[in-house]
């Protein structure tokens, strides 16, 4: 098992290095941090030189990434010019903010999706199943920016108009105490939950239906196993196997920052930082976030594989 994990991690390192190199070159090639300064030369020669130095602009485009790799190996991911902070600090602070909505969204979303899948799969092609499937179709068709705007307007502005109270905050993390924080978190998390549940429950339903049609489920019923146990023990354990991979992907994606949702709710997470970094040609921050999300993806895929092995005795790590 340990050897397997080591091997997997080592296998992704070259891929990551190539990806980072290409991203660095791409960002340098497509953006010009000097754009503003060119106009005011020679008056602002100092600022110009400062930028050249910060971004290593005197180094050839194709060689520039190596300077970055050199310091990155020493644990220094550089400094974000646009936010004026070390990249590691930003990743840490913003990462925590993102996790504040990502963790509840993931937990609630996955559980709700699972429950709905089981509900639907136990009575496929009935009214209840059709209703849920219909809703998930609709939810799945909503781009998250539309969903976020609709929820924000409906549950905050209109809600206040109708009922005269404002139960949720609509933007920016204030968070003095837990209750305030919960009011802040609620709407962005809800957006992610609805969009996620719509996608997951269709997958979960298919997985559960397939499992419930398996021969061993019939065997269990023929033994006299109560229907509850058939579903929650015999079927669920098998249906979870494909879901685990989906969850790993979802969670790592959420933790890397929901760009649209966080931006709409002005949530100071990784998503808006990513947008800023692109807009401002902030190479170091771009690379920092790319590494962050890549490492998360690899890590959670590994977790998924390990869970896979625990759930499914047929899998061997060798």
């Amino acid at each position: 098992m340990f050897a397997y994990i080591t091997r997997r991690v080592l296998a992704t390192v070259p891929l990551l290095v190539v990806a980072l190199y290409l991203v660095h070159v791409m960002v340098s090639a497509t953006t010009d941090p000097l754009a503003d300064f060119r106009l005011c030369l020679p008056r602002c020669q100092d600022g110009f030189d400062q930028i050249v130095e910060n971004y290593n602009l005197d180094v050839n485009l194709w060689l520039r990434p190596f300077t970055w790799f050199e310091s990155a190996l020493g644990g220094d991911l550089g400094r974000s010019e646009s936010l004026g902070l070390p990249v590691t600090t930003i990743l840490w602070d913003r990462g925590i903010n993102t996790a504040m909505i990502a963790v509840p969204a993931f937990l609630v979303g996955s559980i709700v999706a699972l429950l709905l899948s089981i509900y639907s799969a136990r009575r496929p092609y009935t009214k209840g199943d059709y209703a849920l499937t219909g809703l998930s179709f609709i939810g799945f068709a909503f781009p998250s920016f539309v969903m976020a705007l609709v929820l924000q307007n409906l549950l905050a502005v209109q809600f206040e108009n109708w009922f005269g109270v404002k139960p949720f905050n609509t933007g920016r993390k204030t968070g003095e105490n837990f209750l305030e924080l919960a009011r802040d978190v609620f709407l962005p998390a809800l957006t992610l939950i609805i969009v996620g549940v719509a996608a997951d429950s269709r997958f979960g339903r298919a997985s559960m239906i397939e499992t419930l049609n398996q021969d061993y489920i019939r065997t269990a019923r023929a033994k006299g196993v109560p229907e509850k146990t058939v579903v929650w023990k015999h079927a669920l354990r098998n249906a979870l196997i494909p879901l685990v991979t989906l969850w790993a992907l979802n969670f790592s994606a959420l933790l890397s920052g929901a760009v649209v949702t966080e931006s709409i709710y002005s949530w100071p997470g990784l998503g808006p930082a990513f947008l800023t970094s692109i807009g401002e040609a902030d190479v170091d921050l771009v690379l920092g976030i790319v590494i962050f999300s890549a490492v998360l993806t690899v890590a959670f895929n590994l977790v998924a594989d390990v869970l896979y092995g625990i759930l499914d005795p047929r899998i061997r790590f060798d």
């Binding site: 065997t219 023929a222 015999h234 499914d312 005795p313």
Partner: peptide, 16 residues
């Protein structure tokens, strides 16, 4: 009444 099924490869639950 107990029952034995045709395909033993699929009639046992793989995870127990």
């Amino acid at each position: 009444i107990a029952m034995i099924f045709q395909d033993p490869m699929t009639a046992l639950n793989p995870v127990f």
